[in-house]
Design a protein around this nucleic acid. Structure first.
Lengths: 195, 195
DNA sequence: AGTTTCACATACCCTGGGTATGTGGAATTC
DNA sequence: GAATTCCACATACCCAGGGTATGTGAAACT
């Protein structure tokens, strides 16, 4: 194995082991040296690659964020109708929240550990941006009334984050159906001439 | 000062200094011995009263939670109409989120530090319960369609938490108005025969 | 007045994040 | 292909800070 390959291999091993532990134990209870030994290396390697425990966490978050964004977008893009795209995206997000490596890392720990500002910036770069764009398209198409999209997107984003956490906890198939229904209700309020 | 009075005085001093620091620096960056010295005592006193750093935080959270719940309930109770009660409560919550000792402590740190389960249990005991009760009353009055109230409450709770954080960050008078409007839209979707 | 109690102070322990430095083998140079 | 450089890590160490064990003096009780 060449040096570049070797480097990439340990990097990946650290990311994966880190993700596992962050998801199951939470940021604070994760010991960096244990992540390293779990990945078959030592603390030194982790610091070489990521600079700090927070650096590793940041990298894990970024990766998980991207994956989630892609997953949601993929589900949304299966529909032609703009309104259905929004619904499908939201549902995909709720379903994804069941995964601990999403909920614990992205929704619970990330805001505190990275600070709310940085977390929001990362969120903006993926899922939140999709949501905002979807809403803007709907406004442009006249399906949703003209209005500031930003606060609306925040409200919906928050609603779905919380719902996803709730589902992750009471990981029930029925609960997911209920949440999806409730979400439809809420979204319904946005349609032109609904209220 | 009697011993009981003295005890209560230091307890309060620790709670208040703790609340200040947790709000401005966040749980992790708060050093317990500094909280103590800020309150005019030593670490020993803090451990005597609260058992651990987490114990102090828990006490601070409980107090802040109660205050918030009371504030929201008070605003809601100024209205006769059930629907207006819900709206007023939500608006009061949004306004309260501007306060750092609410947003940082209750919304950002508490879920991670106490763990989501414990946080949810505490939330349930105050604001979340009020929200659920309000929704149940609305359903009973036929203003909102019959449906599972639990997931709906979670969605709304999450939406308001996130909105409050957003407001705390861009602490704008106009933003608050926008958020309140967006909230009305979303709530509007719940009324019978709206969708 | 003697004894007990208890609210704290003091001194110490130890985990764990961070850093500074060493090292062996791959990549490069001549 | 021997010498040199480079670099991905390992090793050894530092120290901040949460937690604990024990001491102490003044109030409360007898």
């Amino acid at each position: 194995m060449s040096r570049a390959e070797q480097r990439e291999a340990t990097r990946r091993a650290l990311l994966e082991e880190g993700r596992r532990r962050f998801a199951s134990d939470g940021y604070h209870d994760v010991v960096l040296s244990e992540v390293a030994s779990g990945a078959g290396v030592t603390k030194g390697a982790a610091y070489h690659h990521f600079g700090s425990k927070l650096g590793l966490f940041r990298a894990v978050v970024a990766e998980a964020q991207e994956e989630l964004g892609a997953r949601v977008a993929a589900e949304a893009d299966r529909h032609e109708d703009l309104w259905e795209q929004l619904r499908a995206g939201c549902r995909a997000f709720l379903a994804a929240g069941t995964d601990a490596s999403v909920s614990r890392i992205l929704l619970v720990d990330a805001p505190t550990v990275l600070g709310w500002d940085e977390w929001r910036a990362m969120d903006e770069a993926s899922s939140a941006r999709h949501l905002k764009e979807a809403l803007e398209s709907l406004v442009a198409a006249g399906i949703v009334d003209e209005q500031p999209v930003e606060p609306l997107a925040r409200l919906l984003s928050g609603a779905m984050n919380e719902a996803a956490l709730w589902l992750a906890r009471t990981g029930d198939e029925e609960a997911l159906e209920q949440a999806a229904h409730a979400l439809d209700r809420v979204l319904g309020g946005l349609r032109s001439g609904a209220a």
